[in-house]
Computed example of a mutant assay.
Amino acid sequence: MTLLLTLDDGSIQRKLAEAVDLARAAVLEDAGAEQVGAHVGVDSEDAVSASHLFEATVTGYRGWRWSVTVALAGEDEPITVSEVVLIPGPDARVAPAWVPWERRVQAGDLGVGDIFPVEKDDPRLVPAYLESDDPAVEAVAKETGLGRVHVLSRHGRLDAAARWHSGEFGPRSDMARSAPDVCGSCGFFVSLAGSLSAAFGACTNDISPADGHVVDVEYGCGAHSEIEVEVTSSVPVAELVYDDSLMDFEPAPETPVEAPEPEPAEATVVDESEAPVAEAPETAEVQPEVEPEAVTAETAETADEAQVEAESASEH
């Protein structure tokens, strides 16, 4: 028999690609004409086989295709049909990838009466004796039934810490970002024991939304124990306040009644022709001019008095 894998020059693939009618006849015999659509392509499987694809018009299988695989055993052999199957196309609706049930269970799925066994090699748990400083103590505790078989491993503690830190009661929540202070300084905060004590604790404030929950030390709410609010009156009050019960009242003095102004008297008209005429004073005698050198203190004083008398007489 000739080795087609090494001697093929492309003629075999051409023969396989041209066998569209043979492939359609095979799928019509298997499914029926009402469930087979147009030919949409051909895929090469290997050197001696190829698959022809037809649209599937099957109810409930939108986007699926009929795949008819044909093969050629030799250059002088006829093309034969290997299989006819229904496969999903690129736009087909298919079921999601299979996930084991123990991996599909999420937080909150466990109900009353449900049982969820832990995997044998769960990385979150380790034997209890690995967490003790004294193996003899663990052996005695286990024999008497007082010790636990498993405790949290380092991986389990870190996993829980990351989940709590980024959860509802962590520092990134809306409540924590609007709180005036953090839980680490609150009197209602009770720290956890062990290695988680530095980062987590329980809230014991019944007013807080985190009451009874594990909270991060950086979480906070408006019910912090050290919050002090200044209580003031809702009614605005002035800085200066008068106490009416302690004030002394004095009556204001009565305003005196003003007397009416007297009416102005009528002006008396005087006839200037009948009025007595004052006599003009005699004109003072003119003193002879005196040389400046001959004026003494006595003559200066006498001249001043004469001048005053002359001015007085002129006024009358």
Rank of each mutant, 00 (worst) to 15 (best):
L192Y: 02
H155N: 04
A294F: 05
C183R: 00
L158M: 06
A33H: 02
C221W: 02
V112I: 14
D121E: 14
V269G: 05
N205M: 06
S245T: 15
R148C: 05
S314M: 09
P209N: 01
P276Y: 02
A73Q: 14
E250A: 14
A26D: 00
A210Y: 00
A17V: 09
G41P: 05
D76Y: 02
E218A: 10
V182W: 04
E138F: 10
D76F: 06
S153Q: 05
V151Y: 03
E261R: 10
D30I: 03
V81Y: 06
E272S: 13
T268Q: 11
A198K: 12
R124Q: 11
T2M: 06
S49M: 06
A17H: 11
V126Y: 00
P256W: 07
A278F: 08
E263W: 03
E131A: 15
L28R: 02
W66S: 07
R14S: 10
V140K: 06
P292T: 11
A303Y: 06
R14V: 09
L86S: 04
E45L: 12
G194K: 02
E293T: 13
D304V: 15
S178G: 11
A300W: 03
V81N: 01
V68T: 01
D91L: 10
H52I: 04
S178W: 01
A160S: 07
E45G: 11
L5F: 10
W164D: 00
R104F: 01
A252I: 10
K120M: 08
V42K: 02
K15C: 04
D43P: 00
L5G: 15
K142W: 06
